[in-house]
């Protein structure tokens, strides 16, 4: 699993990347009440707005950490947004992308680097 400074995680399996927000991000947001997800087929470049995650008092854009095409969105979140708080780095995933360039994933932080980054905040 790889991480970004925007508190997103990416897990690559074959050419499919699963993307979500980190435990830290979920804690910062508080109770997640709604997640707006893209439709399958949407193509994104790194940095594009990919999804919106909402708590009662905030709405945050989730930016694509890597480029690719959306192959699936976690539709279970619409009925159970609390999953993002309960298991942000597992069942609370947001989207799956068909990766354009796997090297973009390698360029992200590993767990140790991300943990070190969190200590600086």
């Amino acid at each position: 699993m790889r991480f970004t400074k925007d508190h997103e995680w990416v897990e690559l399996a074959g050419d499919t990347a699963t993307i979500g927000i980190t435990v830290y991000a979920a804690e910062q947001l508080g109770d997640v009440v709604f997640v707006e997800l893209p439709a399958a087929g949407k193509a994104v470049k790194p940095g594009d707005a990919l999804a919106v995650v909402e708590s009662v008092k905030a709405a945050s854009d989730v930016f694509a950490p890597i480029g690719g095409e959306v192959t699936a969105a976690n539709d279970a979140l619409s009925g159970a947004p609390q999953t993002v708080n309960e298991a942000p780095e597992a069942a609370g995933w947001f989207v799956k992308l068909k990766v354009a360039d796997a090297a973009e994933v390698d360029a992200l932080m590993d767990r140790a680097a991300y943990d070190a980054f969190l200590k600086t905040l």
Binding site: D6, I21, E27, L29, G30, D31, K57, D61
Partner: peptide, 13 residues
């Protein structure tokens, strides 16, 4: 994702 200070305050008892 942008983290804004204070937004994560409790919104349920």
């Amino acid at each position: 994702m942008n983290a804004v200070p204070g937004v994560g305050r409790p919104t349920r008892p």
